Simulated scan of single mutants.
Amino acid sequence: MSNTELVAFSGQGIAVWAFVAAVFTLAGTVKGVIGLGLPTLSMALLAVWMPPAAAAALLIVPSLVTNVWQLQPWATLRRLTRRLGLMQAGIVAGTLVGAWCLGAPAGAEASVALGVCLICYATWGLLGRPLKIPASHERWLGPLAGLVTGGITAVTGVFVLPAVVYLQSLELSRDELIQAMGLSFTTSTVALGLALAGQDSYSTPLLGASLVMLVPAIAGMALGQWVRMRLPVPVFRHFFFAGLALLGAYMVLRELRL
């Protein structure tokens, strides 16, 4: 999608932007409850109504800020970064090379790829069991997981697979896992922002809109943290992943016209 087309989209009416704000509120709520899902759910819902490149551009600021928030506690971040450094390098390389080879997420192919990614992610979330990777394999498997995650990010704008699966296989504590996902998602967000800028897919109007969408995203996160204290997380996760699977199937069938 060209920069001119993205600027034209940014001039949509109040009803469209109210819908976008509602999406970020919902996505922030999901992230507040289970620690992930803001970019995944945002891309899934927004891509139904707008070009994937525009959706990816809108999520940059809310995703970055909420993920940096998730990096706490700062005292343990340096040690975790050393352990996952090669994975982060792989994410950056995979995203930039993927964007250079394939361009910013756009067109029916990007929507189908996003739909397939959502189905796979939801299926794993509902049925999958955490893997266990020996520490001796982290040196080569971490960069590989990062490269694949970066490639998927470049194509779909979603950066949960296979990063989350890999991180959960490291047998981190609950707090370490939340922090590790925050680190991976922050790296992916920065890399995606650089990739979109390099493809002329991040216009000034969309940057301003992305900044505005930070407000509903943070409000949603606060709401999600409140919900997390009152709703069994396993129940919420099942509804969340089931909804993603249905949405992904709809996106694939719509584009393939089956």
Rank of each mutant, 00 (worst) to 15 (best):
R257P: 00
M50A: 13
L45D: 10
D175L: 08
V235D: 05
E109L: 14
V30S: 02
L58S: 05
A249E: 01
R230L: 09
F239S: 05
A57R: 02
A55G: 01
A21Q: 07
V227Q: 08
V155I: 15
L231C: 13
E176L: 03
V30E: 01
T4W: 12
V235K: 09
T76G: 03
A110S: 15
G224A: 05
T187D: 09
T187Q: 08
Y202V: 09
T81Q: 10
D175C: 00
A122W: 06
S2F: 03
P51S: 14
A108I: 08
L71N: 14
Q72G: 13
M229A: 15
G198K: 09
L177V: 00
L126A: 08
L223K: 07
I14G: 00
V7E: 15
M221P: 03
W17A: 03
Q72V: 05
M1K: 04
L167N: 02
E171M: 08
A44V: 06
E176C: 03
A55K: 00
S136P: 01
A191F: 05
V160F: 02
I119M: 15
G103C: 06
A180G: 04
L206H: 06
H137A: 13
P73R: 08
G193P: 11
T204M: 13
A245T: 01
V48S: 10
L223V: 13
M181W: 11
E176Y: 05
A245E: 01
G142I: 08
I14K: 02
V160A: 15
K132D: 11
S203Q: 12
L167T: 05
T204A: 14
G243A: 09
W100C: 00
A245P: 04
L127N: 10
W124V: 03
G103N: 07
R139H: 12
A180Y: 11
P73N: 08
V48P: 00
L253F: 13
L80Y: 05
R237H: 03
L59E: 12
L96P: 10
A15R: 10
G85D: 09
E5N: 14
L59F: 06
P105G: 03
N3F: 07
G94M: 08
L41K: 08
S136G: 04
P134T: 05
L231G: 00
I119K: 02
A89K: 04
A44T: 11
V92S: 04
L253N: 09
R174W: 00
Q88L: 14
V165L: 13
A99Q: 07
G157K: 01
V148G: 07
M221G: 02
Q70V: 10
G193S: 10
A249G: 14
G220T: 03
Y250Q: 12
M1D: 08
F236R: 12
V97P: 07
T186W: 12
L114A: 04
G85W: 15
M50L: 13
V155S: 11
K132S: 14
L141D: 04
L246R: 01
S111L: 14
M43W: 12
Y250S: 11
L36N: 07
F236T: 11
G193D: 11
V160C: 07
L127D: 05
G11S: 10
G28F: 08
V116M: 09
M213N: 12
G32F: 10
L131N: 01
A249Q: 02
F24A: 02
G151V: 02
F239D: 00
I60N: 02
V233K: 09
